[in-house]
Write a protein that binds this DNA or RNA. Structure first.
Lengths: 208, 208
DNA sequence: GACCTCCGGTAATGGACGTTACCATTGACA
DNA sequence: TGTCAATGGTAACGTCCATTACCGGAGGTC
């Protein structure tokens, strides 16, 4: 509760962001009070207003910095493996882990209701996350198609279907607070099953 | 703005629910004020407190009545067609239409952030909607498996994958306010593509 | 040690909101 | 026409909250 007393401003800033994220993710934007954040982070409200200007600025900082931290791994990752099945499995596991991470679940929860208030934030969250992942996967599928491994005509659409399969009902249930995030075993089983169906679905077969 | 002046109580109740739903879905629960609802519905705050007790009661009424109205079609529908492809296509179209309906989008938006405040409401929303749809589809797949049409071992899991494919990124984008709901043509194309991949994915093929 | 900047604690300010109370009006009914 | 319950409009009450101001201490610099 007195975490923010640490001397350097960078440390205090980090502690404020951390505490604020927890409260925002739990309560939502409108229901979160500055007092509640300070109660968790220690220090004085002056710090928040000096560092972030106001409540909106604090919220924006949380969303952008968490987005950068968590979602940046989606674009640059080395996902090209020898086998398309391996590639899809690795990609699916990583994608599911990101979707289930507390930061993404928290941001998603608020983004959904505050889309009107912060359209710019929501847009960049989506573009750095789901949109980039889908694009990246579409490129992989495109390459596989050119190699003749799959016969899908619209790789972008197929990529969207795959990420939908990965989210499954799991994402919905976790976001609605109906169940905890899956264990590693559950996650791997879900991904394996999705890859199996998807791969059979797009692989050249004996005619239609 | 004076819609609620109509004489019969049932009519006024309906007008209040309608107006309140609009405001709640636009602004979220915490940011919605009783004054804003009355401004849209006409009449006096007394009506709300007489009819629903308080703000929570009004919100609960909105969620349950809209859930009943929209989601009830998911369970009882006659979806068994001659062909599994036809069945999946019809089911997918219906499911996508429900997911994209303003009522479900609105409830979903609020349910996500108010899951802590109204766990019971959120649970019943999920069970009447996505859970029921998935169960229904699982039964259909089970029947197909027994007929030898498909070779999926875990039909329940496969059903989850299918509804995930149907939601695709479309649901995400609409919920985040990044695009309007799809036209009928878009919806049908998305469903057709999902059915194509899913059906190939679960159909018996020439060995693995 | 004097000075100054930064910070924590607390309170003040101004507004919004849920909920209740009051009053004048209305519309149905006898 | 007289009576009564319901209703619309408005204001009151108590609370909560974002934001700002004020005060006193701490720690560094000359």
């Amino acid at each position: 509760m007195v975490k923010a007393k640490s001397g350097r401003p960078a440390v205090r800033r980090e502690a404020l962001l951390q505490a604020a994220a927890e409260v925002f993710f739990e309560q939502g934007y409108a229901a979160t009070s500055i007092d509640a954040i300070i109660e968790r982070a220690g220090g004085s409200k002056r710090n928040i207003y000096n560092e972030f200007g106001n409540k909106e600025g604090l919220f924006a900082a949380i969303v952008t910095e968490n987005s950068d931290k968590v979602l940046s791994t989606l674009g640059i990752e080395e996902i090209e493996r020898h086998d398309l099945r391996e590639t899809l499995t690795a990609f699916g596991r990583h994608l599911l882990a990101v979707y289930m991470s507390p930061a993404v679940i928290g941001i998603y929860r608020i983004a959904v209701t505050e889309a009107n208030r912060f359209p710019h934030l929501v847009k960049s969250f989506y573009e750095q996350g789901p949109a980039r992942a889908t694009s990246r996967l579409a490129e992989v599928l495109e390459a596989a198609r050119e190699r003749g491994d799959i016969r899908t005509t619209d790789c972008r659409r197929a990529a969207g279907h795959f990420v939908g399969m990965i989210r499954d009902n799991l994402h919905l249930e976790v976001v609605l607070g109906l169940r905890p995030p899956p264990s590693d075993e559950e996650a791997q089983a879900a991904v394996a099953s999705a890859v199996e169906i998807f791969l059979n679905g797009v692989r050249p077969c004996q005619g239609k």
